[in-house]
C-alpha cells in the first residue's frame, strides 16, 4: 500500500501537524515503507484469531475511588503561556 501526498496532507491536518511542501514527498514515501512492513504482516493467516488489545496478556489493575490529588493549579499554570482567572487561555476556538 502506498501513501499519496494528499493522504499525508489530510492526516497532517487532522493531527494539526505542519508539513512543508518539500517534506511531503519524503513523509509520503517513509509512511509507505512502514505500511509495506504492515503488508508483510498481513500475509500471515489470522482467521479465527481474536485481535489482542495489548501486546502483553495482562489484565488492567483498577484503583479504589478515592480523591488523592490536591490543588496544584499554581504550579501547573506557571508553565502555561497565558492564564486568567484560573483559566488556561488559548486562541479563540468556536465552531
Amino acid at each position: 500500500m502506498s501513501i499519496q501526498r494528499e493522504d499525508v496532507e489530510k492526516i497532517a491536518r487532522l493531527a494539526k501537524l505542519q508539513i512543508n511542501e518539500e517534506q511531503l514527498e519524503t513523509v509520503a514515501s517513509e509512511l509507505s515503507n512502514i505500511l509495506g512492513l504492515v503488508d508483510q504482516l498481513q500475509a500471515v493467516n489470522t482467521d479465527n484469531i481474536e485481535p489482542m488489545a495489548h501486546p502483553t496478556d495482562a489484565v488492567q489493575i483498577l484503583r479504589a475511588d478515592q480523591v488523592t490529588e490536591t490543588n496544584n493549579r499554581e504550579a501547573f499554570q506557571k508553565i502555561a503561556p497565558a492564564t486568567e482567572n484560573g483559566l488556561y487561555l488559548v486562541p479563540k476556538v468556536i465552531e
Binding site: D65, E69, R73
Partner: peptide, 24 residues
C-alpha cells in the same frame, strides 16, 4: 457519581474554582 475521576485521583465535585480539580 464517583468521588474521583475515571483515570485520576482528582475530585469530581461540581462548581469548584476553575482548574483546581485538574491534575497532571
Amino acid at each position: 457519581t464517583t468521588q474521583s475521576k475515571i483515570f485520576s485521583g482528582s475530585s469530581t465535585t461540581f462548581g469548584a474554582d476553575a482548574n483546581t480539580q485538574a491534575s497532571a
